[in-house]
């Protein structure tokens, strides 16, 4: 696991943190998708553990040592990759869906601004 020199540069560990379950709503959503997949038998604990671990390793390989704060970002990336690998969706479908969601948000915001 990681070379000692790099590890030595990491800040000292601290157990201090706010005792909250999810920092942002999207983290809860991404978490829930995986739980649903596992409970419905679409995904095993083993496969998820391997996929998440690969995502974390890749990030560390890029020098992105993290203090656990970006954990759900890696979780989300692993989940997107799973959906694409399984042919559930494709990268371009996800991109198109994001664009549509963004446009809908934009539209809704404008509507809200218009209403008194």
């Amino acid at each position: 696991m990681g070379d000692p020199d790099t590890l030595a540069q990491l800040s000292l560990l601290s157990r201090d943190e706010a005792d909250q379950t999810f920092a942002e709503p999207w983290q809860a959503q991404a978490f829930a998708v995986v739980v649903e997949f596992i409970e419905s038998g679409r995904l095993t604990q083993e496969e998820w553990s391997q996929r998440l671990s690969a995502e974390l390793k890749a990030a560390e390989g890029r020098g992105e040592y993290d203090t656990g704060e970006r954990y759900y970002a890696h979780w989300l990336a692993a989940l997107e990759r799973l959906a694409v690998d399984r042919d559930i969706t494709a990268w371009n479908e996800l991109a198109a869906e994001r664009e549509e969601t963004r446009m809908n948000d934009h539209h809704r915001r404008n509507e809200q601004l218009k209403s008194p």
């Binding site: 942002e24 959503q29 991404a30 829930a32 989300l76 997107e80 479908e93 996800l94 994001r98």
Partner: peptide, 23 residues
Amino acid sequence: YDLRTRALVSVLTRKGLVDPASM
């Protein structure tokens, strides 16, 4: 991240792979 998650969830919901209520 929020946008990516919502896009993924709507694709999965549309395909009947997750149910927002049970999520």
